[in-house]
């Protein structure tokens, strides 16, 4: 386990002491600084005029739905494209630059390597989610917020970021070409949203349930509304464990291939 910590520390430093990461954070904050005030403004207009408007869904009058959830969906979209950029170097670049030799000839297990890198990637995702969280946080100066659902919603998106990180880490382990790793990662990140569509075409009740359970959006939508369901947590963690396991197998395979 000390191997995991050593690699985790090194990779975390590699993220947070690297200008690229801060450029990404800056660009994300540029996007939110543009979108978030507009959303907030629209929301305040809606509130002042809502008596005159017919047919506005009542939940849109709640700042959690009206502003924060929209921000979260933008954040999710950004994560789909940004997390692969962070994780693509973790294995692909090491293989290409032959620094992977060092890890494979050090007294650490494949699991140490994968876990160290995975938690570092998740730690980097935390930074991105934190940047996004600054916006609702600053809103609290203007309005009274209900903190619990807000925190749960951000924890939900952080978990989804963890799922992306696991899938993208696996993608990175498959190739030594960082561009290929990036493309494969985005495909993974997008396809996990499309699995749920299967629920609309299968006839049997059981099949529909399976697809619904496998859909990321089902579980995320519960979390962003502020409800924690254990089946959702189990789903997220099992996807993370599955892809970490697959990545571990790939790393291990380089020893006997």
């Amino acid at each position: 386990m000390s191997g995991t910590l050593t690699i985790l520390k090194k990779e975390l430093k590699g993220f947070y002491f690297n200008p690229t990461f801060w450029v990404i954070c800056f660009l994300i904050s540029v996007i939110f600084s543009w979108v978030f005030p507009i959303q907030l403004n629209l929301f305040s207009q809606l509130l002042t005029n809502y008596v005159m408007q017919q047919g506005v869904p009542s939940n849109q009058l709640n700042i959690h739905y009206g502003v924060f959830l929209r921000q979260l969906s933008y954040l999710n979209l950004l994560l789909i494209f940004v997390v692969p950029a962070l994780t693509m170097k973790l294995f692909a670049e090491e293989k290409k630059l032959r620094t992977f030799d060092l890890l494979l000839t050090s007294p650490v297990t494949s699991l140490d390597i994968v876990l160290g890198k995975y938690f570092a990637a998740w730690g980097a995702v935390f930074g991105l989610v934190f940047v996004a969280f600054l916006y609702p946080l600053s809103t609290s100066l203007l309005a009274t917020l209900n903190w619990t659902p807000l925190l749960i919603a951000f924890a939900g998106i952080f978990l989804v970021g963890g799922v992306y990180a696991a899938m993208d880490l696996f993608a990175s382990s498959l190739t030594e070409n960082t561009i290929a790793a990036y493309i494969i990662s985005i495909m993974f990140n997008l396809s996990i949203w499309f699995i749920g569509i299967g629920a609309e075409v299968v006839d049997s009740e059981a099949g529909r349930k399976i697809f619904e359970h496998m859909s990321l959006s089902t579980h995320l939508s519960a979390l962003v509304e502020g409800t924690i369901r254990t089946n959702g947590l189990v789903f997220f963690f099992s996807v993370i464990v599955l892809f970490c396991f697959l990545a571990e197998r790939v790393v291990e395979s380089s020893r006997w291939r």
Binding site: S2, G3, T6, I7, K10, G14, N18, L97, R98, T99, F100, D101, L102, L103, T105, S106, P107, V108
Partner: peptide, 23 residues
Amino acid sequence: PETPPVYADMYVREYLRYVAALK
């Protein structure tokens, strides 16, 4: 190895510390 397994974005001392910890 044939190609020295060094990380370009690390300082020499920091890198050696990392390898020592790994070992």
